[in-house]
Structure formats: structure tokens, C-alpha cells
Design a protein around this nucleic acid. Sequence first.
DNA 1: AGTCAAACCTGGGCGC
DNA 2: TGCGCCCAGGTTTGAC
Length: 290
Amino acid sequence: MPELPEVQTIVNDLKKQIIGFRILDVWSDAPRLVKKPPFLEFKKEIKNLKILDIHRRGKNILIRLDKNKMLLIHQKLTGHLLIGRWQIKNQKVIPLIPGPLKESVNNYIHLIFYLNNNKMLALSDLRKFAKVILGSNKEVESLPDLKNLGVEPLNKDFTFSVFSSLISQEKRKIKTVLMDQKIISGIGNIYSDEMLWLSKIHPLSLAYQLSIFQQKKLYSALKKVLKSALYYRGSSVDDYRDPFGQEGHYSQKLRVYRRNKKPCFRCGHLIEKIKLQGRSAYFCPYCQKQ
DNA sequence: AGTCAAACCTGGGCGC
DNA sequence: TGCGCCCAGGTTTGAC
């Protein structure tokens, strides 16, 4: 499930592949992935638009187009953006390029943008949870998806005092707060577990009850984990792949996520798994005392 | 204000 | 073999 490091890796990779090219056409066998406008309109509107820029906001990918249009893509749980070439045969998507793209992510391609560089940008999504929206710059910018997002954790203006004031008025559990996109954008289940383990904080601790010392530990762990995961091109815990079908290498660096009943890398006690708001949280009961 | 469940989806793993 | 069941999970929505 792509979080900030994965989404940023994808955006960085795609920059070199799609900027300056035109979208010639769109194909989909799951038009419901496009939330706005209705698919036929979407197809008509996006035709021949030139790709001017691509960037990330939270976990959203934003592709700026000609004629003041913007394309928003959120990959949710199992979405993958892939660069390659495919052919549709009997309603099935067949890869034309051998290699890494012949992997399983290819089995779930539901949306293809045909570009004028003889390549295609495809959205593969096993769960079909992904979200695609096309609108004017203004329309897209004012969507709640973007408008309600909190601070970007890797921006310079995300200082310790900003972080401190954000969490010290939060009565919710710290893991819930870290994953709340309205507070800080881009952190999900994997990296919230990792930063809490690194700063030795229990996921169920109430945010406003953390000491200044703990806040400082968490702030630096937060930055460290995200930067490092970005450096290693994200984590491929389930099936995350970059636009070329390659895995991220941070999976080998993960310290707690999905390590239930395995020894803690720090103290050897067994990692525990608990449920928190319908999600799993992994932590070391010895290192991360409440 | 905070917590929780349901909905959106479907492959994979389990028990029988 | 194969059926039914539950689970994973980001985000939104609605209920308590």
C-alpha cells in the first residue's frame, strides 16, 4: 500500500517518462475507477492533452495537463502506476514488453493512458479501490482530497514546534493521529508502526500525553523513517512495485511491521499485534511501554 | 470530540 | 476439489 515514500518514488520515476508527452487516448475495463467526470466525458476531455508536470500531495499523485486541467490519482491499497506497452486481446491486457512487467501486477490493469511516445501509463489495481479524477486546476485543488490535507512531513516548514503543537492538542491515540491525513499527510500503517517503534512509543499512547522528550524522539524518528524509506524506494510488503515493476528495498529495513511473534530487533521480546480502528498495529511490548 | 463499523473490492488462506 | 468463511487495508460516511 503506497504511502509517502512509495508515492514520491513513483512520481520521481514518472517525471522522466511522461512529462512533455500527450495523452492520445484512454482505455478502461473498470470505468468506475474514474470518479469524475463520467468515463466517456473523461475520455473525451483528456484526449490530446499534454502532460506538463507531475507532483505529489499526501498520497495523491497530481498530473498537471494542458488547458488548465489536472489529473488526480490515489492508488489506495493495491494501485500501481506502470510504464510499459500492452495490448488488449479478448478483453484481456497482454504485456508487449517482456521482463519485470510480466509480473502479477500486470494481471490487474484496469486503466491505460496511451501516450505519444509509443509508451503507455497503466493503472493496475487488484482491489479496484483506486480513485481517478479529472478537473480544472481549481476544481481539483479545492477537492476535499487535497484541501483537507495536513502538513507535508518532509517540507522544511514542518518544524518540531509545528509537530508539537499539532499533537499536543490531540486526545486520540498517537498511531491514529500519525495516520490522520488531515493532521500530517502521507503516513500510513507501515511507517506509523516503524516510527513508533524507533521512538519507543506505544501505539495506544494518547498524543497529548507524550512528554516533550517523547515528542522529540517521535519527530526525529518520523523524519528519519520517511527519508530512509524514500532513499530505499519504498517497501514492497504486499505487492508494491515502482513504475517499472521493481520492488522497493525498504522492506528489508522494516523493524516491526508484520513481524508478529518475531523477536524485537532491539530487545528480543516478541512483537505483538493489536487492532486499532480496524487496522493492525505491531509493536514491541517491552520497548514501547504505555 | 472520539470511537467504531460499514462500504468500496477481491485474492489468498483456512477449515471442513 | 471446492465451498464458505474471514482477512487485509486507505478513505469516506454515518451512527452512537
